[in-house]
Amino acid sequence: MLQASAQKLVDGLETDSTDLGRAQRTTLTLAQSHCLLDPRASIFPTWDAWVTAMQVSSAVFAAATTSEDHVQCRIAHEDRTLQATGPQHYVTPGSWTTAFYLAVICREKDRITALCHVPLALLRENGSRFDAYHYNWISTLQAYWLGKPDLGEKLVSAVDGTDPEIASDPETAGKLIYPPMEMFHRFLRKDHAGFTQALANALQWHREYWTEESRMYQSPGLVALAPLAMACIAHDAGIPIGVESEYLPATLLGRNWYGEFPT
Rank of each mutant, 00 (worst) to 15 (best):
A224K: 05
R80Y: 07
V243H: 04
V10A: 03
C232E: 03
P220W: 07
T196Q: 14
A49E: 03
M1N: 11
D79P: 00
L36Y: 11
D11Q: 14
S58F: 13
Y258K: 05
L151C: 09
G259W: 01
S33D: 10
A143D: 03
A6E: 11
A250Q: 07
K8L: 14
A63S: 13
T162A: 15
I241P: 12
R129E: 13
L2H: 15
A132R: 15
A143F: 08
P164M: 06
V243L: 08
W210V: 03
A198P: 12
H235E: 06
L253I: 07
D38S: 13
V156D: 13
P262G: 04
T29P: 01
D150Y: 13
E78N: 06
D160G: 05
R129N: 12
D69I: 01
S157K: 15
Y209H: 11
T46Y: 05
A143M: 06
L20T: 03
R215K: 09
S219Q: 13
G174Y: 09
H185K: 13
I233D: 12
D236N: 06
F261T: 02
G86S: 08
G221M: 09
Q3W: 15
G12P: 08
T98H: 12
R255L: 14
K8Y: 11
H117Y: 12
G21Y: 06
D236A: 07
H89Y: 10
D19M: 14
I75D: 02
T46D: 03
P119N: 08
Y144M: 11
I112G: 00
A193T: 12
Y101H: 15
K148P: 00
P45Q: 09
P87D: 10
T65S: 13
W47D: 01
N201M: 15
V56F: 09
R80S: 03
V104I: 09
G152L: 14
L30T: 06
G221E: 07
G238M: 11
A237I: 00
R186Y: 02
F130N: 07
L102D: 01
D38M: 14
F261I: 01
V159N: 09
A226L: 10
R189T: 00
A167S: 13
Q55C: 05
P227Q: 06
R255T: 07
F184M: 13
A121G: 08
C232L: 06
A158F: 13
A234C: 07
T65F: 04
S42A: 14
K148C: 04
A41R: 02
E244G: 00
I112C: 08
L222T: 15
A237L: 01
V104L: 10
C73H: 10
A226R: 10
R22N: 13
S57Y: 12
K148L: 15
I239T: 09
K109H: 05
L13V: 11
S5C: 11
R189G: 00
T263Y: 01
M183I: 09
A84K: 15
G259I: 02
W257N: 02
L9I: 06
S139Y: 09
I43C: 07
Y209P: 05
